[in-house]
Nucleic acid binder design. Structure first.
Lengths: 300, 300
DNA sequence: ATGTGCGTTGCCTTTCACGCAACAGATAAT
DNA sequence: ATTATCTGTTGCGTGAAAGGCAACGCACAT
């Protein structure tokens, strides 16, 4: 038995109003329940119930604890159902809809994790534009969606979000590389190679550049992120990406990431979503939970 | 002890990778942990760990269960902290910022609930316009915010939301009263008394009326909801409100609520929010949890 | 005054988690 | 190839904790 019987005792006593009735429903002796509650109250150092003549009423502390207890019991029920649905077949299928930039930066580690832990689970990753991700998740063609600037929708449930800082990216021998952060003005002196407006990050940057009124020239735009990185490596050009786009290159010392101030450019919001209606099966929940932790860890 | 030691066992074994190491950290015998895990696996009918030569690796089922276990342990930690903060003083203070329509419809029952269960908790309810609610919660002048069309904000955490249907409200002897639902066109034949644009519901209705291109005349606008109800009672006028605005009058048979189709008018979104940073103390959590259940129950 | 239903407590039994020691299997070191 | 080491696992005995039963004291309803 995973959970202590205590949980059911508290729930049932709060629900029934008296210990004896709760004991009857749970098929145990009233004295047993009573003793456990008294012991718990002593351990917590605070009464959980107010003893009225004909009723056990929850105190503030009790109300607080019972919410946690019921949440736990409900959550356990869900897990049991998922386990039952999975019993027998050891396999599973998870369909993830995401964006190009994420597929090459964040997902390799996730795929590795999944292959190591659960090799029997089939994982399909579809790279789509933003609106197509929303449509795929809504239509049930994908179980999970992971992307930037996904707008809130009552038919979608956000599982996690993180605000990613944008920054200038330059080669290690670039004049700016020694600094810890830069402003848009600092970058204006160098040739810029930036994502075009079809990339969500490009839209944010275009907006920021217009607002800052910095005089920029020699701007090259593209929607190929890998091209941006390659171009910056040779020469003194500057490009703009977010933290995870250049994660691997930073660790290898091939590229330098210089954060821009929040006042100049909005953060890029990464969201993990699922359909509001409908539940995830076991394998899907496992990936969802792992992705949730990955995303939440980004906002450091 | 509220929770079974089993929870810590699973958590620590998954974390440490071996039973013996987990046993060492938890100061128990490895055999004890081992037996409990085996028993649980038998009970659930599925292995939780894959026994590798030097490691216990979670299976899909195990991954699923461990997520539940850790969530439970974290949640319990929060509750213990709240309980500790409350120890000694039996009182508490909760400051709720909300709107006029809600204060007269939804909150009376909540206030009664709170007074019955926790009379020592001081509850202040402040009726404010929408933007002032956001400002109050953000500034820490209110612990909780409850209102319509509260926009999402990274600095605010949504605790619950519900999409409320709008509908026409008429007297029981009105020609439309026998129907189960109406369209905007059906209402055009009658004098309309609608909330003005300063009320969130009025803004939604004005938008819907313009879009529907229904010819309406003899329209009276006001920001006093109670006035709307009173006016509809005498004569054959029609007004537009949401479900909970007329909840009490519906039960008494004094007014009839006729839902409008979702295609003609958007639903009114009710949200319960708190500050993203900062935690609630015990008394505040109790009210928040109760309000959460109330709000979630609305979307039936 | 009486009866009913409640929480609580004393006494006893039963169950279950625990610790210790030993075993079997697989890897790592020699 | 042999030894050493680390792993999960199992048999057995012990002790703590939960459970069951009956009785007590209290408050309310009749």
């Amino acid at each position: 038995m995973l959970h202590a019987r205590m949980l059911s005792y508290l729930d049932e006593v709060a629900r029934a109003g008296t210990i004896r009735r709760a004991a009857e429903r749970l098929h145990v002796a009233a004295s047993s329940i009573n003793r456990q509650i008294i012991a718990l109250e002593a351990e917590l150092g605070t009464p959980l119930f107010e003893r009225l003549p004909r009723q056990m009423r929850l105190t503030v502390a009790g109300e607080l604890l019972i919410a946690h207890v019921r949440q736990t019991l409900r959550s356990y029920d869900v897990v049991l159902t998922q386990l039952a649905n999975m019993k027998g077949r050891r396999t599973g299928l998870v369909r993830l809809a995401t964006m190009g930039g994420i597929a090459t930066s964040l997902l390799p580690a996730v795929v590795t994790w999944m292959r190591e832990r659960h090799p029997a689970v089939k994982l399909t990753i579809q790279v789509l534009p933003r609106d197509a991700i929303l449509a795929a998740v809504l239509a049930g063609d994908a179980d999970l969606g992971l992307g930037y600037q996904l707008p809130p929708d009552p038919k979608l449930r956000p599982l996690a979000r993180a605000g990613l800082r944008l920054g200038a990216v330059v080669a290690p021998d670039h004049p700016l590389a020694a600094r810890r952060g830069v402003s848009l003005g600092d970058c204006a002196a160098y040739p810029m190679i930036i994502p075009d407006r079809s990339v969500t990050l490009g839209a944010l940057m275009a907006e920021a550049l217009e607002r800052s009124a910095v005089a920029v020239d020699r701007v090259i735009e593209t929607n190929a992120i890998e091209l941006l990185k390659a171009a910056v490596l040779t020469g003194n050009a500057v490009t703009f990406l977010n933290e995870i786009d250049v994660q691997t290159e930073r660790q290898r010392g091939q590229l330098v990431f210089l954060p821009l101030p929040d006042s100049q450019v909005a953060r890029q919001e990464l969201r993990l979503i699922q359909r509001a209606r409908g539940t995830l099966d076991a394998a899907q929940s496992v990936l969802a939970e792992h992705l949730r932790e990955v995303v939440l860890a980004l906002e450091g």
